Every structure is written in structure tokens, then in C-alpha cells.
Simulated assay, not measured.
Amino acid sequence: MHIGKRIKKLRKEKKMTQEDLAKILGVKPTAVSAWESGRNKPLMDKVGLMAQYFDVPISYFFEEDKLEEKTIPIKRFAKLPIVGTISCGNGVIAYEDIQGYEEVPGSWLNGGEYFLLEAKGDSMIGARIMDGDLLLIRRQNDVENGEIAAVLIDDEIVLKRVYKTDGTIILQSENPSYKPIVVRPEDMKNIRIIGKLKKVILNF
């Protein structure tokens, strides 16, 4: 089993697509495809990132053939990046300023891609989201009316409850001290929903 098959095995165990893994590593999906098919090999910095993300030793990718068929136990925990900023150049979302990684129970994750944000300020205290809490976000570009989402406004990430009506989006805080942000159709190019709040990890 070459290194590409090992990458594919880990990816499948996490129920990730090649595109999901590519976004985390900052490469194109075609690069992941080339690795998995054996047409190319990842650079060591990408191997290191994958080892950290999948929580396996780097040596796993280079073990001798006789060890290759050993099954890696399903991880009870997963390491997720704590994202400081997010950019959206050319419509492609990229994580920047990763402040570290946090282990979360695998039972919290149900397919798709997840990341963590740190809550800032008091605009969502009515939803029991306090400054410094970690927020588990499932990456997706839309949410249902009334759900809480991470929203990218220009280069700033905000957490708001989202309401949609007649082509207009209203971003509502959970603190009466903050006025709602009304986004009309002509302003949509500066606004992008990047994920849905799945869980608040309290900061003790």
C-alpha cells in the first residue's frame, strides 16, 4: 500500500471528500487525487499536516508493506483547527491564522468539514455564547431561517442568527444592545455564510 492509499484510507475513515482534505491542506483537489492514485507524492510539510489532523504518527505514511494492512482504530477524538481568520479569494475559502488544534469527541462530527472559532464579545450572550467560548462550526454555505451561523463580512467573521426574507438577509445578535445587520441583495457580494454553529464548548 503506497502513501496515497494510506491517505485515502484515513480520509475515508473520516468520511471526507478529496475536496474537504484539499481545503484543509491548502491544495487543489487534483493534488489529493494525484497522491491517492500514486501519480504524485505530497511534500513533507503536507504529510506533517495530515499526520497532525488525522492524529497518526508521520511514520504511518512510510511503514513497511508488512504493516500496511493493520487497521487504524477509529479515533474517539478528532483534532480540529482553531481558526483565527478566514479569507475568501476567488470564491475559495481558506483558513488563515490557525491558532492551534483542539480535540473534540468524534461523536460530535457527522460527515462534512468542521472547524473551531473563538467567540469574541458579548453580542450573542442571549444564546449563552460568552467571550472566549469555543464554537464548533460545520462548514456550509447556507443555513435555515433562525439558525446561528458563522458569517464572513469582508474579512471579519461574525456569529449571528440568520433570517432570510424577500432576498434580504438579516443578521441578528442575541443582545438587545446590538442592532441587526440588514444585508440587501446589492450588498450580498460582501457577505458569505461559511458555516453553521453545531455546539458551544464552554470556556472554564
Rank of each mutant, 00 (worst) to 15 (best):
I194N: 03
I181Y: 00
I170A: 14
I170M: 13
K196D: 03
V183H: 08
N190G: 09
A150I: 06
L159N: 02
L197N: 03
F204Y: 11
L202E: 12
E174K: 10
K160W: 00
Y163L: 08
Y163I: 03
E174F: 08
K196I: 03
R161F: 10
I191T: 10
R184N: 15
E156R: 05
I193T: 10
V182M: 12
E156D: 12
K189V: 01
F204T: 15
I157E: 10
V158G: 01
A149M: 06
P185G: 13
I194H: 02
K199R: 15
K198Y: 00
D154F: 00
E147W: 06
E186H: 14
Y163H: 15
F204L: 12
L202P: 00
I193V: 14
L197H: 01
E156Y: 09
P176T: 13
V183W: 09
E144S: 04
Q172S: 13
E144K: 00
V182Y: 04
K198M: 08
R161Q: 15
P185H: 13
V158R: 03
K164C: 11
N175T: 13
D187W: 05
K164P: 11
I191Y: 12
I153T: 03
I201T: 02
N145A: 11
K160V: 02
E156W: 04
K179R: 13
V200D: 02
I169P: 09
P176Q: 13
Y163A: 05
V143Y: 08
L159M: 12
S173L: 07
V151W: 01
D155C: 01
N175S: 13
S173K: 09
K196L: 13
N203Y: 10
E144P: 02
D166P: 10
K198F: 01
P180A: 09
A149N: 14
N141L: 06
T165E: 15
I193N: 04
I169E: 00
K164A: 12
K199M: 05
V158N: 04
